[in-house]
Design a protein around this nucleic acid. Structure first.
Lengths: 136, 136
DNA sequence: GTAGGTGCAAAAGTTTTGCAGGCTG
DNA sequence: CAGCCTGCAAAACTTTTGCACCTAC
């Protein structure tokens, strides 16, 4: 009666996972849906949502809460941070990891039991930097 | 033709700001609506949303993207981090600030132009720790 | 007086879910 | 062949918006 890893590998789930691992754009569920329809026209948005949820709950992929109105997903589950472009919402990876134990630090300051941290940056992506310069 | 600080201080806006500054619970827009209705029964949810948006854009309050399905708001705009309870969604404050310049560190790793960072923790709030212990 | 704000309600956008049939293990 | 999964569509939820009236400055 524990979390059962009964993950059945359906065609859909496989394609979703493959596609997510292939891209580095941190797509939203709908982005994924649009991408996937090209190779599997009958896939449904509901299935995409369901699988992204299940896969992230199983720790196979990562669900991101990086601001904006939609959740995003990341096929790379290594420890890394993200930057979000304040203009266009594009999300990039950043390989900074704090050089000391932030959790321990935080634990001293609260009566919550700290599990982990999440570090995110906001900025301007190369493309929007360009646009800004052109407009200025 | 710049951002014009034409903030008119209506009764509603005043009450919203007051109430948000009074609580330390990082309420959602709907939480606020429920709280506010007690002292201003005719206030509308739309007004609450509109004002929280305007106030946070003006930098008077803070909009939080701390996970979960709804945005939360914080009347405290000092630099601080948040913890979110993975069980109940409750959000607490944490006064850790990294001891070196994370933005500079991150800037080396990306072609985004970095503006700022956001550090968030996940954990278990005191109440849910208790519940867990009781159930175990 | 006027521009910005409000309440109300409808609309828009995102995510979840019920159901009947289908496919994996 | 049992039970998980899918497609479809409806529903649920969160947030935004149009409009006519109102009010702070």
């Amino acid at each position: 009666m524990e979390a059962k890893n009964k993950l059945r590998m359906t065609k859909q789930r496989q394609v979703i996972l493959e596609e997510l691992r292939k891209v580095k754009t941190h797509p939203t569920a709908d982005d994924m849906y649009q991408m996937l329809r090209k190779k599997m026209p009958k896939i449904s948005l509901g299935t995409v949502y369901r699988n992204l949820e299940i896969l992230s709950e199983s720790g196979i992929i990562q669900k991101l809460d990086v601001g904006g109105t939609q959740k995003r997903f990341d096929g790379d589950i290594s420890i890394h941070s993200h930057v979000r472009c304040v203009d266009c919402g594009r999300v990039g990876d950043i390989d900074v990891t704090p050089k000391y134990n932030l959790e321990a630090e935080a634990q001293k300051m609260t009566d919550f039991m700290i599990f982990r941290h999440r570090l995110e940056f906001t900025g301007l992506c190369p493309i929007c930097q360009h646009k800004k310069k052109a407009t200025a």
